[in-house]
Design a protein around this nucleic acid. Structure first.
Length: 297
DNA sequence: CTTGCATTAGCCCCATGTCC
DNA sequence: GGACATGGGGCTAATGCAAG
């Protein structure tokens, strides 16, 4: 059983018409007929039921068809991978990044890279750190832009840039006009943030710990946008990275004077595996743009 | 009976394995 | 390395079978 036999079978089974399938495959009809017979002989079971001048796929044939399709997909993927391995300017890069990064820098980086290498195909995914890193370990992503992951022997993390965190207040809050605030200034306000497991939440918890302040949550959400929305509705205050999409008539972002509130975003990847040239080239591009060596246009 | 379609038969070509 | 056998790929032509 080889790839060609499977392709012949799949085409014939999908069309349920040997002559038309042979035309599609650009072989003579007997050649296809014989290839199918050989396959049936090897499998020891009929793939087609012959009724005079028509054929239909047997139930065994239908099962075998499903599996054959999967095998051929693997064949195609392996072939594509082999091609991609030789060409850094094409191929597939799957990138996961935090929800909070979906505006600004990341779209700009992607647009800049795509302008240089139009044949590169990006597959993007977003989510909280823990989900992204799980998917990274499962091979869903080649690279992820996340905050420092909790310990993992499989994932390596390389810091790239620092993101400032802001106190987010509803417009009209008594502190909304201030130029800078300390963490202690919002101690009495109901605090809204992301649920457990989010790296941003860990950063904020660490910030309060460092400042020696207690922290309790009035509301916990799944996305920074949701949190900002709840703040805008006057339900409390929060601490988030700059909210580019937030409506300034709803929420106000105030820099934090004390303690210094930064979180580092970096590139996560699986340590052991060797990335394709396309993935390596993209990682290098991000590094160089962020280091100011390269202009992202 | 004619037509359309699948299979079989007989042939050639080529790649691979085995033997010397 | 060359000779030979084997098996799979291809082709055309012939045959078998069922629908119209």
């Amino acid at each position: 059983m080889d790839e060609q036999q499977l392709r012949y079978f799949v085409t014939a089974a999908e069309m349920e018409h040997i002559t038309k399938a042979a035309e599609t495959l650009s072989v003579s009809q007997p050649a296809l007929s014989r290839a199918v017979t050989r396959l049936e002989r090897e499998l020891g079971a009929p793939l087609f039921e012959r009724h005079g001048r028509s054929v239909s796929v047997t139930s065994f044939g239908k099962e075998f068809l499903k599996r054959s399709r999967r095998i051929l997909q693997e064949f195609d993927a392996a072939r594509q991978d082999a091609l991609d391995l030789q060409a850094p300017d094409r191929g597939k890069i799957s990138l996961g990044f935090l929800h909070t990064l979906s505006t600004g820098l990341i779209p700009d980086l992607l647009a800049g890279y795509k302008a240089r290498y139009p044949d590169v195909h990006f597959i993007l995914g977003q989510g909280p750190s823990h989900t992204l890193l799980e998917q990274l370990e499962d091979g869903v992503f080649d690279l992820c832009l996340t905050a420092l992951p909790e310990f993992s022997s499989k994932v390596s993390w390389e810091p790239l840039w620092e993101e400032e965190l802001f106190i987010i207040l509803p417009a009209g809050h008594p502190l909304a006009e201030k130029e800078r605030l300390n963490l202690s200034d919002i101690q009495k306000d109901p605090f809204i943030h992301l649920k457990q497991g989010y790296s941003l939440r860990r950063s904020v918890e660490r910030l309060f710990r460092e400042a020696g302040l207690p922290l309790s949550f009035a509301f916990e959400g799944d996305e920074a946008d949701t949190v900002a929305g709840l703040v805008g509705a006057g339900l409390g205050v929060s601490i988030l990275p700059a909210q580019q999409t937030a409506d300034p008539s709803q929420v106000v972002q105030v820099p934090i004077a004390f303690p210094r509130a930064l979180r580092t975003i970096g590139l996560s990847r699986i340590q052991q595996t060797s990335a394709s040239p396309a993935v390596q080239a993209f990682a290098e591009y991000i590094r160089r743009v962020l280091a100011g060596e390269l202009k992202n246009e």
